[in-house]
Design a protein around this nucleic acid. Structure first.
Lengths: 237, 237
DNA sequence: ACCTGAACACCGTTCAAGT
DNA sequence: ACCTGAACACCGTTCAAGT
């Protein structure tokens, strides 16, 4: 105990230690709890000490994104591009599920950090290795959008707001869709009803996220495969 | 002038007037300039006066989203679902281009506001009218994700950060990709190079956003059409 | 030369005092 | 009863004073 305190004190502050602590804080308490002051306190350090290693909070966030992206598995050596791309994206998804704040952070910052660039570069490489033209690979990367990093950016997604502590259990809060809502939005109600057959729940809560992600991913990959086989090329503009 | 000032003073504060002013402020100065204090000042009112009409800032943002979504054209009466859906989404895109802060706000809040629900409901309705099963319509809505509201959520998207004032001209900042970056990420460089053939620019800046959006949208719609024609159904789980 | 406490310029929101 | 100024509990970051 005394030893631990001493260890903590002796361990010199470094950019790496700061980034790791920041990721841990965001994972556990939610991104809204990540302030320079809170982070400094977690590290047993005065807030100003952080500024020796990161220029400001934006740079801190960029660094955190790089840490997360660095956790994604390296590309699997695969015979076909489709398998390789699919595997890599599903691996990315597993990583982002561990860091629910990351998608929003990535979108908010939308920075081309080194780790993100490296990831994208190797993803493009997989398409090129599969025989894609530069042209098609380009548009395909755009079409995949954020899904290439493993998150789907759906319209309703409560997972990313609070930290782990807030939602330890899957929370069957699941009050059924209020009747007056169901009456005003019949098509939404119809889907919510069907989705809650198995487990009782409401609008998205009853959806199998993994299934939905793979459904969309395969929809895109199949369409891309077809374009590739047809030898699709950009219209001359 | 005096008359205008008087008019402004006489016009009673209302939720509607607050929401409109908030949208205008976010449009012009960027979402990061939207504070309760700034907004109150724009309205010539003390900050606390706002709290009579909106419970807090979150509710303000929800209201702003509803204003924006309310600007989307009503569904076009169309023979086929594909045309109807495509037109509506492209209309939504035009609206969101006028409010660059909205995509991020929608993602951050991810609230089922009445206007958003009404929009989604009518979109599902278009699929159902086209003969889609509840099951397929459900997964298709997930697969479309935020694209259904007209934004693509790409990885790099600088348009949404600053307000209009910050970026009046399209800004050919376009310093070519730094050589050491190009060397480390050859595939990224290759695409950047090809994309900057027409207009000199860098990584996404040289891309035709409208083209990329429609490319992805049609990729999804074509895939969806094929599933529908095949009579696709969820695997029994 | 380095480190750090206090200070600055902001937030959203509460609350009690004034009308 | 209503409105509102001051105050509270936070921010990120600057800066000058202390070692």
């Amino acid at each position: 105990m005394a030893e631990q305190a001493e260890t903590v004190r002796r361990t010199p502050l470094s950019r790496d230690r700061i980034l790791r602590a920041a990721v841990a804080l965001a994972d556990e308490a939610g991104i809204e709890s990540l302030s320079m002051r809170n982070l400094a306190q977690d590290l047993g350090v005065v807030p100003m000490a952080l500024y020796k290693h990161v220029a400001n909070k934006d740079e801190l966030l960029d660094g955190m994104i790089d840490v997360v992206v660095g956790e994604i598995d390296p590309p699997v050596p695969a015979a076909d591009w489709k398998h390789a791309v699919r595997q890599r994206i599903l691996s990315a998804r597993q990583v982002l599920l561990r860091h629910p704040w990351a998608p929003l952070a990535i979108e908010t910052r939308n920075m081309a950090t080194p780790a993100v660039l490296a990831y994208l570069d190797s993803m493009i490489g997989a398409f090129r290795a599969g025989g894609f033209s530069v042209d098609l690979a380009h548009h395909v990367m755009h079409a995949m959008g954020s899904r290439i990093l493993g998150f789907s950016q759906e319209l309703f997604d409560d997972s990313r707001r609070a930290g782990r502590s807030g939602r330890t259990d899957p929370a069957p809060s699941a009050a059924a869709l209020p009747p007056e809502i169901a009456a005003r939005f019949p098509h939404v109600a119809e889907i919510a009803m069907a989705a809650s057959h198995d487990d009782e729940s409401v609008l998205g809560q009853g959806c199998d996220d993994q299934f939905e992600f793979e459904f969309a991913l395969d929809l895109l990959l199949d369409g891309i495969e077809r374009l590739h086989q047809r030898g699709w090329a950009s219209p001359r503009r």
